[in-house]
Design a protein around this nucleic acid. Structure first.
Lengths: 147, 147
DNA sequence: TTCCTTGCAAACGATTTGCATTGGA
DNA sequence: TCCAATGCAAATCGTTTGCAAGGAA
């Protein structure tokens, strides 16, 4: 998945709802496309080195979330992090460090992912809930924080 | 698990660190013990009908979290919800409604929970991460919101 | 008395919004 | 030209904290 291909896909997705894919929006997608995990507005703003004011980053994030380009994550108190949706980035899960609060992506081998599917299908079978997506969040200590 | 037994367990846990189990703290534990899922500070404050001021609810929540009595959850933007820790309440997972933001507990049948264990053990085997706990969050629409 | 706990109000940090300006189709 | 997008500053919301008063050991 190259940067250019992300841009093409996002652009056509946004076109469907008459939303412009401007320079600022491109910049945000680019930062997220090359990140190792979900990022918060402030982190994105930092990596953009002031090219885009913080309030515009927030506006971009909500436009892109609305369009289904980004997915929000709430692994840490009071902070919302975003990442490219699975149709852009592929299916994966998260390792959340309980010490530094960082989040890293990881994928499961096929057999274990199949187990996950069974679990999710079971829940879909419960009358009281329409299962949509699943996300497995494993908490622990990342390599840097694990003394 | 009765209310009285929760109180006994929490009291002795707090005693270990010389923390008092006051009326306000009991009230918070009681609300959480009878909830259908994790609650945020404001929700707890409401259910207490003004018996405990909001700032004291916050202080109680952080004292109880510190003591390992409560576990925080971040399923919704900008809102932290708490619930009794698993040693008080048993192991379970969460259904998060993407429409109303509500959270409900659910448990998996043993065979599926065993699948989860395999998955978590696999992650524990990864060099770069010390797995601690796992929580499965399924997103979808709850019975009330599913039109 | 001593230290923990509480209540209130002020402070904070993340996020949102009003409004005037800019820019693309 | 016209409306979406932007930048800035002010407002909002959940949460935290300083400080003085209350309470238990």
């Amino acid at each position: 998945m190259s940067v250019a291909s992300h841009h093409r896909q996002v652009e056509s997705r946004l076109a469907e709802s008459d939303v412009r894919y401007t320079a600022g929006r491109r910049a945000v997608v680019e930062v997220l496309g090359s990140a190792e995990g979900p990022l918060g507005a402030a982190e994105i703003h930092d990596r953009l080195e002031g090219q885009v004011p913080l309030s515009s980053v927030y506006r971009t994030l909500s436009v892109l979330e609305e369009a289904g380009v980004l997915i929000p994550h709430f692994a840490q108190k009071g902070l919302t992090r975003y990442e490219l949706a699975e149709w852009l980035r592929g299916h994966h899960h998260h390792l959340v460090c309980i010490q530094c609060g960082g989040v890293e992506d990881f994928t499961l081998p096929d057999d274990l992912e199949a187990d996950m599917d069974r679990i999710v299908r079971h829940i879909g079978g419960l009358a009281r809930f329409q299962a949509d997506t699943h996300s497995l969040e494993i908490e622990g200590r990342c390599a840097r924080c694990a003394t």
